[in-house]
């Protein structure tokens, strides 16, 4: 376990998340993609803290902030999906394409 191997795992998670966000139609699946990408970001930040900071706790605070981003994304995302589902009866991105017509 070195900084490079952990960062490579983080890159794989970020790539899978990006693929999911771009390819999925369902709102919730898109949110899952975002969460997976943030997961990779947190892992990368944790690895850099562990191997390059000498134990400086502010590095972990950065990961806490990334965790906050994930929580906000999930809560507001769910609320938006509920609102869109209620107003438009839509649960996929294709379901709210009115403005394109």
């Amino acid at each position: 376990m070195t900084v490079v191997t952990v960062l490579l795992v983080a890159a794989v998670l970020l790539g899978i998340g990006t693929w999911g966000v771009l390819s999925q139609q369902s709102f919730v699946m898109i949110m899952m993609g975002f969460e997976l990408a943030i997961n990779g970001v947190m892992l990368a930040a944790g690895a850099l803290w562990r191997f390059t900071s000498g134990g400086e706790p502010r590095g972990q605070v950065l990961v806490v902030v990334a965790m906050l981003v994930m929580a906000v994304e999930a809560a507001i995302g769910f609320a938006l999906v509920v609102a869109v589902s209620r107003a438009r009866r839509a649960d996929t991105t294709e379901g709210i394409a009115e403005l394109r017509r």
Partner: peptide
């Protein structure tokens, strides 16, 4: 339930390769 599957795969692989190369 997917759209633009090929573009998504390409972008995913490219981002993995890019971040991996940085690492």
């Amino acid at each position: 339930m997917v759209h633009q599957p090929r573009v998504a795969v390409v972008v995913g692989v490219l981002s993995t390769a890019g971040f991996g190369a940085v690492a």
